[in-house]
């Protein structure tokens, strides 16, 4: 089955790395198929940032996300901009610290969107003491909520994707996110 995931936030939050970790976990460690794409351009420098991953048990031909099954919003701008593409009954994961779910309440109700709160930024700050690992906290939450990748694959993928020497902190961040929901 093909699952389309979009992660949106602002530049610097590491949403691209979060997507790469998901894609690598799915394809290399879970032995599924995955394609990761992202938007390039001026918005990659501080403005809005978007990363997309398609995960499937079959070969992925069309590589881009059109109607996400899962939207992860790490900024309110991304939430408002991308929610309209969601499929009916899709999963929405938001960081309540950086988004306001009330702004999209109407769409959520109309389209039967399943909403999960994952306070990734606050958890990164409070539990890890490092705001920059909010993306990894979010990977933990995504793994737990969606089951799109296995926990073992996620951990292996994180270990092989983050800078050497930071593995421990990042795994801790992942576990914190995994235990959020």
């Amino acid at each position: 089955m093909r699952t389309e995931i979009r992660i949106g936030g602002f530049g610097g939050q590491g949403v691209i790395l979060a997507g790469i970790i998901l894609g690598k976990a799915a394809s290399i460690f879970d032995k599924n198929e995955a394609v990761q794409t992202q938007s390039y351009g001026p918005e990659a420098r501080g403005g809005a940032s978007k990363c997309e991953v398609v995960v499937s048990d079959a070969v992925i031909d069309y590589p881009k996300v059109q109607r996400p099954d899962i939207l992860v919003a790490m900024s309110n701008e991304a939430l408002i901009k991308y929610i309209v593409d969601l499929k009916d009954g899709a999963t929405l994961i938001v960081d309540p610290g950086t988004t306001d779910i009330e702004d999209v309440r109407e769409f959520i109700d109309e389209h039967n969107i399943k909403v999960f709160n994952a306070p990734a930024t606050k958890t990164a700050n409070d539990e890890i003491g490092l705001k920059i690992v909010a993306n990894i906290v979010m990977v933990g939450a995504i793994t737990k909520i969606t089951g799109i990748i296995s926990k073992d694959a996620a951990i292996e993928s994180i270990k092989s994707s983050v800078p050497k020497g930071t593995e421990e902190k990042n795994i801790k961040a992942f576990e914190a996110g995994y235990n959020l929901v």
Partner: peptide
């Protein structure tokens, strides 16, 4: 092309 150049796959 840019699609193939920038996307990630196994």
């Amino acid at each position: 092309d840019e699609v193939v150049g920038h996307m990630r796959e196994k």
